[in-house]
């Protein structure tokens, strides 16, 4: 019987270690988890509306609550995918195409007329911009505007990120969003829609 008994000792230690490790993991997880939100709480929405924009309308600071939420609109694939759907529901493609532009500027050329920060994009969508960008303030909720902005920002990302909206199951006319998209197209150079808005490299 002795071999069996001596075989048991290390196994016990081992099992105790495993259980302890599992418990530690479980506790860590309890602190880390991020549930998906289908509807933002009203106070959070109100806070998200309070972006501080530079007087020029270019760039600014996101509200504190955005950081408190851990920047979900740029960092979670779910919000970006929702943004992608909003992009089609609100017919953004009628001016911006699949990102390549049209009546409105392109998102794929690496140039942002009002700066690349998410605050600028939120402001552009919420308040509108000259030369035809309409305000969407009264058509979308502010969290939807943030979701859409996160997606728009990802279209023109310089390098692939691990969080990206998925590509569509459809004919592919440009590299999918999840595959380092815009950088491949930068060499074509920006194409200004309005001469006076042209980029000044």
């Amino acid at each position: 019987m002795s071999p069996a008994v001596s075989g048991k000792g290390p196994v016990r230690i081992f099992e105790v270690c495993c259980v302890a490790a599992l418990l530690a993991v479980a506790v860590a997880i309890g602190l880390l988890r991020v549930p998906r939100q289908y509807r933002t709480d009203p106070p959070v929405s109100a806070a998200l509306d309070a972006i501080r924009l530079m007087p020029s309308g270019i760039g600014g600071a996101p509200p504190e609550v955005y950081f408190a939420l851990n920047q979900p609109y740029e960092n979670t694939a779910y919000d970006m995918s929702q943004g992608k759907r909003l992009y089609s529901w609100f017919s953004c493609a009628s001016c911006h195409g699949e990102g390549e532009g049209g009546a409105g500027p392109s998102f794929l050329d690496g140039w942002w007329l009002y700066g690349p920060s998410i605050v600028s994009i939120v402001a552009s969508i919420r308040d509108g911009r000259p030369h035809g960008m309409p305000p969407f303030r009264d058509r979308m909720t502010i969290d939807e505007i943030w979701q859409l902005s996160g997606y728009v920002k990802s279209i023109g990302a310089y390098s692939a990120k691990t969080t990206a909206p998925g590509r569509n199951d459809d004919r592919q006319n440009r590299p999918a969003e999840n595959r380092s998209p815009a950088a491949l197209l930068f060499n074509e150079g920006p194409s200004p829609v309005h001469p006076e808005q042209g980029p000044s490299p």
Binding site: T76, A77, Y78, M80, S81, P165, G166, R167, N168, D169
Partner: peptide
């Protein structure tokens, strides 16, 4: 698929 595919299965 497609529910688990790239378009409808957001995230990881």
């Amino acid at each position: 698929v497609p529910l688990s595919g790239p378009e409808y299965g957001a995230g990881k």
